[in-house]
């Protein structure tokens, strides 16, 4: 039998105790969910912790999940709630997650294409670092919609389902986030954008 293409089929199998099916779900979404969390939190380690917790929550709720929406929408919704909780809790503890991205982490996630000319590669790394920094300066409301749109490639309706707001709100938040990020880039010398 071929591997099931449908996420919900894997969910139903996992619900019946098939852990291989659940592991397949984790493998399918570990990278996009971790990527989303990292862009939201700025910290690679925190992102992976939250991403793992998201999958644990999904497993805990397996019996209650209903295929009324795409599974990925539910999963991103859970990850989104956990990242927002994390940001709120970090603020209460006085630890600003927006300051948590280290230079080393910037470098780790920088473009690694050795085929690029050194000066071109350095310029791209610089722009990427500025974008990273700019993302962390956005409010969580604006950051999440921009990440879901630009990095995850989701459409406005799906984003609205995940963040639980109207499509029009998504539209205006994305535009606002882009404008803020563009201004940030200009301030940092990224005028060549």
């Amino acid at each position: 039998m071929n591997a099931p293409n449908d996420d919900w089929e894997l969910v139903f199998r996992a619900r019946d105790g098939n852990m291989a099916a659940f592991a397949e779900l984790v493998r399918r979404y570990e990278r996009p969910i971790t990527h989303f969390c990292q862009r939201m939190l700025g910290s690679r380690q925190d992102a992976e912790d939250i991403a793992q917790d998201s999958f644990v929550r999904v497993f805990r709720y397996l019996d209650r999940l209903q295929p009324s929406a795409k599974f990925s929408t539910l999963l991103f919704g859970i990850a989104r709630n956990l990242t927002l909780n994390f940001i709120r809790d970090s603020s209460r503890r006085g630890r600003g997650v927006t300051q948590s991205l280290t230079t080393e982490e910037f470098q780790e996630i920088a473009v690694e294409d050795d085929l690029l000319r050194p000066d071109r590669k350095a310029r791209l790394n610089e722009i990427e670092a500025m974008i990273e920094q700019g993302l962390q300066l956005l409010s969580p409301d604006h950051r999440e919609v921009l990440v879901l749109r630009e990095i995850q490639g989701l459409d406005y309706n799906t984003i609205a389902d995940i963040v639980k707001c109207r499509k029009g709100t998504v539209k205006s938040r994305i535009a606002r986030a882009r404008e803020q990020l563009r201004q940030h880039m200009e301030q940092l010398g990224g005028e060549s954008l």
Binding site: R31, P32, T34, H35, Q38, R39, R44, A47, E48, I109, A110, V111, E112, I127, E128, I131, E132, L146, E150, I151, G153, R178, L181, R182, M185, L193
Partner: peptide
Amino acid sequence: LSAHLGALSGP
């Protein structure tokens, strides 16, 4: 800007 965001390497 959108192109740069889309090209951000994931973890």
